[in-house]
Simulated assay, not measured.
Amino acid sequence: MKRDYLRVFDLDREEFLSLIEKARELKINRNISYCPLIGKSIGMIFEKPSTRTRVSFEVAIYQMGGHPVYLSPRELQLSRGETIKDTALVLSRYLDALVVRTFEHEKIEELAKWATIPVINALTDLHHPCQAMADTLTIFEKKGKFEGIKIAYVGDGNNVANSLIEAAALTGANITVATPSGYEPHKESIERAKKFTEVTIINNPFDAADDADVLYTDVWLSMGEEGNEDKKRKFKDFQINRDLLKKAKADAIVMHCLPAHRGEEITDEVLDGHQSVVLDQAENRLHTSKAILEFLLTQ
């Protein structure tokens, strides 16, 4: 039976942690030839811009012996009105998996419903599960554990926040999200996560950062929201800067999924500072992409 990875909660705790361990193993042995995807072709549909996600998946597929097939949305018949159902059924006859970045989460759910091959969510407006797996690997590398770790996410309760909450639930880390009223993460992700770990939603970033092991932020304006000056004004006090970092533990790490709007959600001083792990975080997209692909395509 085929599996999809559309959100973090598509995996159980044991599966999620095993993928983190597999990604660590692949990272350590990155110079050793390992090609479990020989003979397999993976389609990549990106309706939104992408740097880390597209490159990490394309390189991961190639390094594991597979063939990445980039499918521009403008060149697919989807752009001329072909149904998602027909597209999914046809592509399933050619490909071994699909990596998809799109807008509405319902669209990727519809694609996965009809596809007979694994579908991987490379970002939707609601979830970013591949990012969350790389984030989790990074936290483990830097802290050596999950239990007792406090993650403070400061900023928009967006797709990154939703997936980070679900990842915290599966690892046992505690997470506090500080966001302006009305911008809280998805309620369903919060309620499900609370069955496994402590999830706190507040409106004060300094309270969230207090004694935190991890300070995490993302852009205030997601793709498609550019120019929303009213929203930007509401987030002006939700910046990771020197003062906020002082509230966290002395050895706290700073995370950002990138791209960053420097001077908005995070200052240059912090993003480029010695506590920042954003480049390790970005690199880990490659290793976790490999783990996800192997899990879904070699069962």
Rank of each mutant, 00 (worst) to 15 (best):
Ala88Thr: 10
Leu19Asp: 06
Glu198Ser: 14
Pro129His: 09
Asp86Gly: 09
Val90Trp: 04
Thr176Ile: 15
Leu91Ala: 00
Gln131Ala: 14
Asn241Ala: 11
Ile266Gly: 11
Thr176Asp: 10
Ala167Leu: 05
Lys143Gly: 04
Asp12Pro: 08
Thr116His: 13
Leu26Cys: 04
Ser18Trp: 06
Ser276Lys: 03
Tyr94Gln: 12
Gly65Gln: 07
Glu104Ile: 05
Arg93Gln: 14
Arg30Phe: 05
Ser289Leu: 05
Pro180His: 11
Phe146Trp: 00
Lys195Leu: 10
Pro129Ser: 05
Asp211Gln: 13
Ile32Ala: 09
Gly172His: 03
Ala282Leu: 11
Gly172Lys: 04
Leu258Met: 14
Glu294Tyr: 03
Glu21Gly: 07
Thr298Trp: 11
Val254Gln: 13
Asn203Thr: 11
Asn31Trp: 07
Asp268Val: 05
Ala250Asn: 14
Met1His: 15
Gly224Asp: 14
Ala167Met: 03
Ala173Lys: 01
Ala132Leu: 02
Asp218Gly: 11
Tyr153Asp: 03
Glu104Ser: 13
Asp243Ile: 01
Arg233Pro: 01
Arg262Trp: 07
Glu184Lys: 04
Lys22Arg: 14
Lys27Gly: 09
Tyr216Arg: 02
Asp211Thr: 07
Gln275Arg: 15
Val277Phe: 14
Ile151Trp: 11
Ala122Gln: 10
Gln77Ile: 04
Leu170Glu: 02
Asp230Gly: 01
His274Val: 00
Ser189Ile: 03
Asn203Lys: 12
